[in-house]
Design a protein around this nucleic acid. Structure first.
Lengths: 344, 344
DNA sequence: GGCGACGAAGATAACGATACCAGCATGAAG
DNA sequence: CTTCATGCTGGTATCGTTATCTTCGTCGCC
């Protein structure tokens, strides 16, 4: 009669307590109408008095879907946190739960975590991949579990993909500097490895080529010290760049801090455009001119794409839509860090 | 022979393909040494050729722990994102996975999500509760699944708890303003409901009482408009507060934006201390003096407390340690927004 | 009064993986 | 040649839940 081995109560315990069969309890749990009202309430009482909670593992084993989608991101920066919110919102509308997995920019962790999501039998996967080959995705494809690539494409197989126009956005920002008469425009970035950074650097290069200017690449700056050293060199050099394009939020912030430390005034002594807008950009000592991308838009699009696949997979009609590839534009938010009226 | 109903392959499919019994496959999966090398590799080949992944649900049903802990937070602000990172790091060290659940400050969602975590049979729970009675925790207690309260206490039953000294931190900040000669010091906050805000307001009140100053409470400002209206009133009023204490990051940021919009200079026209430090605080137009709390410290402490319970629960020795209640101090980071040398 | 019909509840067999207990070779020891 | 230990492997019950089939009353109707 006592709970065996001190484990959580099962449907059998409830059945015994309510003096009914397990099936009746199951029917109550699933709101099956063919249970008399008196029986139902007897069962409900037993459930509450035992503190019974149905075991998801057993339910899944009997075929119920996990009703869970997973979002895999490299970090939980506020950009991806916004993505998560958008995804979760769509998931909740559909009655799904959302699992976040953070890989910490480690592709071994990514692979291992993705495998573990497969073991969990998630219903779908939104992946901001760190790169590599993501061989762990194989079993998702083979079992027909939908995968959507977000923010960064997946190399090998055709997959639904939602991306930002990183290259065009970067061009936009760099052209803005060019139009203000700058000729020595540097590009600073931290991790030259990631897809997004590469694209933005490429956009910078295209703009510079088009304007017949010599690029000044300051890439792969690892950490705050490298950034400070770079700015220190600039501060001491008469022919330093007169403008900088920073390829991502952290680079922009570190750059601003380093410029601040070396008393290089923005935009008087150096102009600045950053990729990624953020909450405080307009109350910085010099409000930042930035290329803005919308995390919620791309994430919502990815989630909706995913659910389209999930519902399509449930209809046995093997209606294999071709893979979508959606691009979202980036826009330039003009504030003061490029000295809009300084050079004219 | 064909996969039935197009479902993922099972251990039986692997066994059939490798021409062995399911037990042998199971042994291979669990690295049981009593499998001959040739057999093992036959099985491995079958596993790979089928793209087989073991079903976690079935494994859990057979008694294996979920090896998963959950972190429940109201939002994914960068504060809680940092908490998550710290928790996940501890979890990974122990071979556990971490589930994040975001409640969106909705206590109905919180309860429902916590129930769903119970159904998932997570091994432990770190809870930043939104308040309410959290009746959904009952089944956790009854089944001996450890719960740790983080950042905010749980009202009813004794629970391990990790908190920040919000009140003392707030006092620290307000005293800093008082010591600079301010007498009309306002306290602005957005959601007066949350525990942390209440504590900080209480700290403000204590400091004001101790200094025999009249408190100016501007609480429950809902959204950016209310903040702007408040600041607009100040801008027009000669006897406006000369200093402000903001109770949380968002309040501080919105306040800064509003002050900026109405051209109230910090600290010349109004001094400012905020609760919560953040990355950009020192490169704002006026670097912010802030009360700093460490998300990683408290989160790590909570995670370690949780795992102490988890491992204690596994040893049947019902060694019921009494509940810990750990406090972490908050420190004052002095920058320029209170005009450190303006009033002397 | 006997018949089918219907409403409510029980018995049983899966789902996929693993623990336990056998089997069944081979080789060594008596 | 038997006996028994040892090294691999297979059969089967089980975890908690649900789908399917059965059972058992009870009621209405000819």
């Amino acid at each position: 009669m006592e709970k065996r081995r001190n484990r959580p109560p099962t449907i059998h315990d409830v059945a015994r307590t309510a003096a009914v069969s397990v099936m009746t309890v199951s029917r109550v749990l699933n709101n099956n109408p063919s249970v008399k009202q008196v029986t139902r309430s007897r069962v409900m009482n037993a459930i509450h008095s035992l503190g019974y909670a149905p075991n998801d593992a057993a339910r899944m084993l009997k075929g119920r879907s996990s009703r869970t989608i997973a979002l895999v991101v490299p970090t939980l920066s506020d950009f991806f946190a916004s993505c998560f919110h958008a995804v979760q919102q769509v998931a909740i509308e559909r009655g799904y739960q959302t699992l976040v997995v953070v890989t910490g920019r480690d592709s071994a962790v990514e692979d291992q975590q993705i495998e573990s999501l497969m073991n969990h039998r998630v219903s779908g996967l939104i992946l901001v991949t760190i790169g590599a080959d993501t061989k762990s995705l194989r079993s998702f494809r083979e079992n027909g579990i939908p995968v959507v690539a977000l923010d960064r494409p997946i190399t090998a197989p055709p997959t639904d993909t939602v991306l930002v126009e990183n290259r065009e956005g970067a061009e936009l920002g760099v052209w803005h500097l060019i139009e203000h008469g700058h000729t020595r425009i540097a590009c600073v970035s931290l991790d030259s490895g990631s897809y997004t950074t590469q694209e933005r650097v490429e956009g910078y290069m295209q703009a510079m080529r088009a304007a017949k200017l010599d690029p000044i690449l300051c890439t792969s700056l690892s950490g705050n010290e490298a950034m400070r050293a770079l700015v220190a060199r600039w501060a001491a050099s008469p022919d330093r760049p007169t403008a900088v394009f920073a390829t991502k939020r952290i680079a922009t912030v570190q750059l601003i801090q380093a410029l601040h430390r070396h008393s290089l005034r923005v935009p008087q002594e150096i102009a600045l455009v950053g990729f990624d807008d953020f909450e405080l950009a307009e109350v910085l000592s010099t409000p930042l001119t930035a290329v803005r991308q919308s995390p919620t838009e791309i994430a919502r699009a990815a989630a909706e794409l995913l659910f389209k696949r999930i519902t399509a997979a449930q209809d046995k009609t093997r209606n294999d839509h071709p893979c979508s590839k959606i691009f979202f534009p980036a826009e330039l938010i003009i504030r003061r860090s490029c000295g809009c009226s300084a050079k004219d």
